[in-house]
Amino acid sequence: MFFQMRKVRKTFGGLVAVNDVDLDVQQGTIHAVIGPNGAGKTTLFNCITGLRRADAGEILFEGENITDLPTHRIAAKGIGRTFQNIRLFPYLSVLDNVKVGTHLLNPTTLWDTALKSSRFRKLEKEVEDLCMELLHQTGLSEKKDQYARNLPYGEQRKLEIARALASKPKLLLLDEPAAGMNPAETAELDDFIRSLKAKGITILLIEHDMKLVMSIADTISVIDYGVKIAEGSASEIQSNERVIEAYLGKRRN
């Protein structure tokens, strides 16, 4: 199995934010996680990426237990992410923000830099090219020297995706990428995510925009009060009673 979660649990004081969740993600698919506000979706992502430690359970990636690895080691395994509330480096340039993402790909050492070795120059060129290509794809190449904090909101979201892609992840976690986007931008995003799938990147997506989710997700998992209450294809989920209840019966926002 490509990615697996086994009985992962995370509590904050008395609150069980993630309650013994099992999750399997197939390689090469787009897997959406939906649920009402405060359901525990972001916390789930945080546990996967090591930002928060799960209290119990285990997380396996390509057969390897990554539950207790430090964040940079998990990233090195090939898991990249974006954030619901944008976490760019505000005082770095747009280009530098993307370059941070390439950190893992670039094995040059200080010595290489000091000696300007041919290896260093070659890698440096590759990194530069990759970053520029990603900026082109996200339409940010014109603004590469601006501070990230000066970009409009929608472009900051795009930059986050570009940064995550710069590390060439195998599994990409997107936390509400369409938040704050207008319908035209969302449509663009739809295409873009599909293109990533086409390149073989597996995608785990949190999204409140149901139109987007239903259109692109191969599998959908629904979480409510930290518990996974349903899983299946778009049509299965749309007709699932517990899901309807969770969304309609006791909407909390």
């Binding site: 930002l51 964040t71 940079h72 480096f89 770095l92 370059k99 993402g101 950190h103 830099t113």
Partner: peptide, 23 residues
């Protein structure tokens, strides 16, 4: 590259770690 790592850790060490930087 090392300098960029230092700058990112300086700005937000948690995110830096998530980006693969060994904090």
């Amino acid at each position: 590259k090392a300098g960029l790592a230092i700058r990112t850790v300086s700005l937000d060490f948690k995110t830096a770690g998530l980006m693969g930087i060994n904090v």
